[in-house]
Design a protein around this nucleic acid. Structure first.
Length: 126
DNA sequence: TAATTGACCGATC
DNA sequence: AGATCGGCCAATT
């Protein structure tokens, strides 16, 4: 909805073109839902740029606040090692939004993109 | 400065 | 079935 590149710390070469689409997609994820890297990349226009999406997250520009925790891998799992700090934080944030982890995995049928659409269209929160 | 490295995914072998 | 490989490119080493 709005360009977040008001921060002078952002690298000029990076985070200028396709990344904006990524930010928008990620920020457009409804609360309590998640998207996979591939889906974000696809929605951003490039289906093979899942990797770039993850990089854009990990190396997110300073100054841009992004709900990075709503992006998981295609298996519905958090990619970071379970003993890492980031894993705990991401899981914690998601659970705080109502996302349920089943054996460390998110049910993408419910919380994934399709589930988000269903909720938006049907107005039925699970 | 050049080479390596990734929060990945999908197709292919 | 499981493993490998290609795509894409900035930050890190």
């Amino acid at each position: 909805m709005n360009t977040q590149q008001t921060d002078p710390n952002i690298s000029n070469t990076d985070f200028n073109s396709w990344k904006k689409s990524v930010w928008q997609v990620v920020q457009g994820i409804p609360r309590g839902h998640v998207l996979t890297y591939g889906e974000v990349a696809r929605l951003a226009g490039k289906s093979r740029w899942a990797r770039r999406v993850s990089q854009a997250m990990r190396r997110k520009p300073k100054g841009v606040s992004l709900p990075w925790h709503r992006v998981v891998n295609a298996q519905g799992k958090i990619s970071l090692p379970q003993d890492s700090h980031g894993y705990q934080e991401q899981k914690d944030r998601l659970e705080a939004e109502g996302v349920v982890f089943l054996d460390g995995k998110i049910d993408l049928d419910k919380f994934g993109y399709q589930g988000a659409l269903d909720q938006l269209l049907w107005g039925e929160p699970l």
